[in-house]
């Protein structure tokens, strides 16, 4: 009876993945929504290499198989990630769903993926043939469509260890819990010696992929607050042009207004 494989190590998981037609199953909360009696799953939820949260010299390394609850409870994960993880669905889902699944499912509404975008995090993808580490911005090809190869697993997410303290995060859903993002917004702005050193903005649920436009944010880098204020109008106009939500059950107009309001408010809060 081969209708599922329980991998006990990363090596075993990669072996099975390279030789069998299986669907990687991490937390299961997205897969099980679309019940599929013919699916053969590769169960990754007990693969130890994917369950760790640790630090190396450069990064916080988050196992892709860590559940949202584990993210919230970890001492190592930054506050901005905890806050987003805590707004995913509800406890009985957060205890199952994983950050890896959140990324690989390929939804532009994914709450934690937004945080990995805004923090310019990297993904460690591993296959039997080798591994690669890529910025998350290169991971997505479109909605539900990523560069992950059939024999490849997202094993870890690398986040910088510092620099995310001055953040703003907002999830707008239909209600206060058990809700998908209608719009989500994350922003980080850092200063040194009176100049903006980092400005990182990301929007969720407004397009096929989470929206992160470094070239727009670069307009503010190296500027003092008054200098930034001087280019504010152009900066906002660039985002105004970049944000084109798809018309769905939630109106594009609503989504865009919220995005621009939150962005404007964020700049205001920084005196820009």
């Amino acid at each position: 009876m081969v209708n599922g494989y329980q991998a006990r190590s990363l090596q075993e998981a990669l072996d099975i993945l390279s030789s069998e037609a299986v669907i990687p199953y991490s937390g299961g909360t997205d897969l099980m929504k679309k019940a599929n009696g013919n699916a053969t799953y590769l169960f990754l939820n007990k693969v130890p290499e994917m369950k760790n949260i640790r630090e190396d010299r450069k990064y916080i390394r988050i196992g892709a198989g860590c559940t949202f609850t584990e993210i919230i409870e970890s001492e190592l994960t930054p506050a901005i990630l905890k806050e987003a993880a805590a707004l995913v669905a509800a406890p009985a889902i957060r205890n199952l769903g994983t950050v890896g699944g959140n990324i690989c499912n390929g939804s532009p509404k994914a709450d934690c993926a937004l945080i990995f975008f805004v923090t310019d995090s990297k993904l460690r993808l591993v296959s039997k043939k080798g591994e690669r580490v890529i910025p998350i911005s290169e991971f997505y090809l479109g909605r539900n469509h990523t560069i992950l190869q059939k024999d490849e697993l997202l094993v870890e997410i690398f986040m910088n260890k510092t620099g995310f303290e001055n953040y703003c995060y907002k999830k707008v859903g239909a209600r206060k819990a058990l809700t998908m993002s209608r719009v989500s917004f994350a922003a980080i702005l850092n200063m040194a010696d009176g100049k903006i050193t980092q400005c990182m903005i990301a929007f969720g649920a407004v397009g096929e992929v989470i929206l992160r436009r470094k070239e727009i944010d670069d307009m503010l880098i190296g500027r003092t607050i008054p200098e930034a204020r001087a280019v504010k109008e152009n900066y906002l106009a660039a985002y105004e042009q970049a944000i084109n939500p798809v018309q769905g059950r939630i109106s594009a107009e609503y989504k865009k207004t919220v995005c621009m309001n939150l962005l404007g408010d964020f700049l205001d809060s920084k005196g820009i």
């Binding site: 209708n3 599922g4 494989y5 329980q6 199953y25 299961g28 909360t29 897969l31 099980m32 929504k33 019940a35 799953y41 169960f43 939820n45 007990k46 609850t69 669905a89 509800a90 406890p91 009985a92 889902i93 205890n95 199952l96 058990l178």
Partner: peptide, 28 residues
């Protein structure tokens, strides 16, 4: 049956989980 109501919640390894969202193979 879609993880949206909690009526099927059980305690799985000490934590609350919606049992409709758990494939049997994941709980060996």
């Amino acid at each position: 049956n879609e993880g949206e109501c909690g009526a099927c919640a059980v305690i799985l390894d000490g934590r609350l989980a919606n049992s409709c969202m758990v494939a049997l193979g994941s709980i060996q």
